[in-house]
Computed example of a mutant assay.
Amino acid sequence: MLSCLVALLGASIFLAVSPSDAEGHRAVNYWGADYKSCGSFETSYHTHVYAKGIKCRLAVRLQKEYWNAPARFKVIVNGGSGAEGYTRLRRFPGWICRSGSGGGSCAKGKRVSAYSN
């Protein structure tokens, strides 16, 4: 009984001090210190957005376009995923989006909108 109480107390302390977003999911920046966290949104996954060299508003718009736009607003090249595949967004000319296991990014030069899910 005492060990259960100690375990429960330890878990509640961990939950109280662990960083998380508004929905209660653990938000970890896997992209690195030069990327700022821009929040998250729901798609088929809980998608966290990060930005480098752009404002968060644009980073989130790019990722929502990549995840939610109808197919007619995208140009998929070589299947869209994998080593040679990528997606272009018609409403954001010049941006190239690539995806991998658990994350990906849309980039235009050194500007990046990244996600993890």
Results as ranks from 00 to 15, higher is better:
residue 10 G to P: 15
residue 103 G to L: 06
residue 26 R to Q: 05
residue 114 A to F: 07
residue 48 H to V: 01
residue 114 A to L: 07
residue 24 G to R: 02
residue 91 R to A: 08
residue 25 H to M: 02
residue 97 C to R: 01
residue 54 I to F: 01
residue 64 K to Q: 12
residue 20 S to L: 09
residue 3 S to M: 13
residue 86 Y to C: 03
residue 66 Y to R: 09
residue 34 D to S: 14
residue 107 A to S: 13
residue 101 S to H: 08
residue 19 P to L: 08
residue 65 E to N: 12
residue 59 A to Y: 02
residue 111 R to M: 07
residue 56 C to T: 04
residue 86 Y to A: 02
residue 43 T to S: 09
residue 65 E to I: 00
residue 57 R to I: 08
residue 24 G to F: 04
residue 49 V to T: 00
residue 17 V to R: 10
residue 65 E to H: 12
residue 48 H to Y: 14
residue 56 C to S: 09
residue 99 S to I: 00
residue 33 A to P: 14
residue 117 N to P: 12
residue 35 Y to G: 05
residue 90 R to L: 03
residue 75 V to R: 12
residue 1 M to N: 12
residue 78 N to T: 00
residue 27 A to N: 09
residue 74 K to T: 04
residue 74 K to E: 05
residue 7 A to D: 10
residue 17 V to T: 13
residue 108 K to A: 00
residue 56 C to K: 00
residue 49 V to W: 07
residue 32 G to Y: 07
residue 17 V to C: 08
residue 24 G to T: 03
residue 96 I to T: 04
residue 29 N to W: 02
residue 56 C to A: 01
residue 45 Y to F: 15
residue 115 Y to Q: 04
residue 15 L to T: 11
residue 31 W to D: 10
residue 48 H to C: 09
residue 48 H to I: 00
residue 29 N to Q: 02
residue 85 G to T: 02
residue 14 F to Q: 06
residue 64 K to P: 10
residue 19 P to R: 15
residue 88 R to V: 03
residue 65 E to V: 00
residue 2 L to T: 14
residue 62 L to K: 00
residue 64 K to V: 00
residue 45 Y to N: 13
residue 116 S to L: 01
residue 62 L to H: 10
residue 55 K to L: 09
residue 33 A to R: 11
residue 73 F to R: 11
residue 85 G to S: 05
residue 57 R to L: 04
residue 29 N to S: 05
residue 47 T to R: 08
residue 61 R to T: 04
residue 37 S to R: 08
residue 22 A to T: 15
residue 117 N to F: 14
residue 2 L to W: 11
residue 44 S to K: 12
residue 33 A to E: 15
residue 44 S to M: 09
residue 98 R to A: 09
residue 10 G to Q: 13
residue 80 G to T: 02
residue 85 G to V: 03
residue 9 L to C: 13
residue 94 G to K: 02
residue 35 Y to C: 05
residue 20 S to Y: 10
residue 109 G to C: 09
residue 33 A to I: 06
residue 28 V to C: 08
residue 57 R to E: 06
residue 29 N to T: 10
residue 60 V to L: 06
residue 13 I to W: 04
residue 45 Y to I: 08
residue 21 D to V: 12
residue 74 K to S: 12
residue 73 F to G: 05
residue 105 S to G: 14
residue 36 K to H: 11
residue 65 E to F: 07
residue 61 R to G: 01
residue 47 T to C: 09
residue 50 Y to K: 03
residue 40 S to I: 01
residue 96 I to R: 06
residue 25 H to V: 05
residue 47 T to N: 06
residue 27 A to P: 14
residue 97 C to V: 00
residue 85 G to H: 06
residue 36 K to W: 05
residue 10 G to W: 14
residue 18 S to V: 15
residue 3 S to R: 01
residue 83 A to M: 06
residue 105 S to C: 12
residue 68 N to P: 10
residue 93 P to E: 07
residue 34 D to I: 03
residue 79 G to P: 08
residue 85 G to R: 05
residue 105 S to E: 14
residue 55 K to A: 13
residue 69 A to C: 08
residue 32 G to K: 05
residue 21 D to C: 12
residue 56 C to R: 01
